[in-house]
Design a protein around this nucleic acid. Structure first.
Ligand code: SF4
Ligand code: SF4
Lengths: 146, 146
DNA sequence: TTAATTTAAGATAAAATTATCTGATTACTA
DNA sequence: TAGTAATCAGATAATTTTATCTTAAATTAA
């Protein structure tokens, strides 16, 4: 069960973090990403295409082709990825599912939820992929750490 | 787009809050709830049945029948409802979608995410339906406030 | 130039979630 | 007792999300 991000978005976060551990300029194939991260091959392909379109990744066809970061790892925040895949709904929608979340006439959880939401938002905006990659200790990533 | 709770769960939270504003002992029909809260009739029926099964609501058939709280409003927390409908995955799962979220070898967001998660959990555990109902100022609920 | 490898793109399928339909059961009321 | 109104329960449908399949296009290397 996904928490606040869609499956697609989770895959995107995992894959981009993986790419950030690669030497600059090196291309990584969908095949490698899909195998190492246990993500469905073609589904991942679509997601990566999307991120290329949004400018967060670059790609190249043919042998030796693949995907790489489209910006320096320090300039890609988690929010960039979440925004590209899931949009910004979590930042504006009512947590109880009411049509809109206006500040006036707040319910009992409005304010505290607002704080957590803002905190999560700040976390996404402040953390970049370079930090994620550096701290990432998952075995899937371990082999490539230099 | 739902944030952290499923659509079902959002509907449940809305409906139970609505019921908490009713005089004790009064039964409310699915029809009324569905109309006032703009929730699909039969879908809501299923959800309410579920909550009855879990003991959070009670029901009665026949004319003058309907649904009412199964416990005092002060004893039904938001967490009770979320747990009944969505389970507790948001409390244990990795926010990035990795198979498990263990404390050892944390990634760059593990700790801060853990804080928000704990905060949200506390919010759900501490807030009960009576508080929600009291503070609820949505027009859908306004007519019944006494 | 040809074969191999990789992304790109569109169609299709499967699964999960959300929503609807139908009939049965229960209980109140006249 | 008959009629009505409500929940209960199971089947079905629609929608969304996730996953797969197929072919084309690009690029490299032999
Ligand atoms: S006040 Fe509460 S119910 Fe109303 S929009 Fe904000 S979070 Fe939702
Ligand atoms: S450390 Fe980070 S990536 Fe690892 S399980 Fe916890 S939240 Fe997920």
């Amino acid at each position: 069960m996904s928490i606040i991000f869609s499956r697609q978005c989770e895959y995107a976060l995992q894959a981009v973090t993986y790419l950030a551990l690669k030497p600059a300029g090196e291309m990584t194939s969908i095949k490698e990403l899909a195998k190492k991260l246990d993500i469905p091959y073609h589904f991942l392909g679509k997601i990566l295409q999307d991120l290329v379109y949004k400018g967060l990744l670059m790609s190249q066809k043919g042998p030796t082709g693949g995907f790489a970061l489209g910006l320096p790892a320090t300039e890609i925040t988690l929010f960039h990825i979440v925004e590209a895949i899931d949009g910004v709904g979590f930042n504006t929608n009512c947590v109880l599912g009411f049509p809109e979340c206006s500040g006036k006439n707040p319910c009992a959880v409005h304010d505290s939820w607002g704080e957590y939401r803002e905190g999560i938002y700040q976390m996404l905006v402040k953390r970049n992929i370079a930090e994620m990659a550096k701290a990432m200790k998952k075995p899937e990533y371990a082999a490539m750490r230099r």
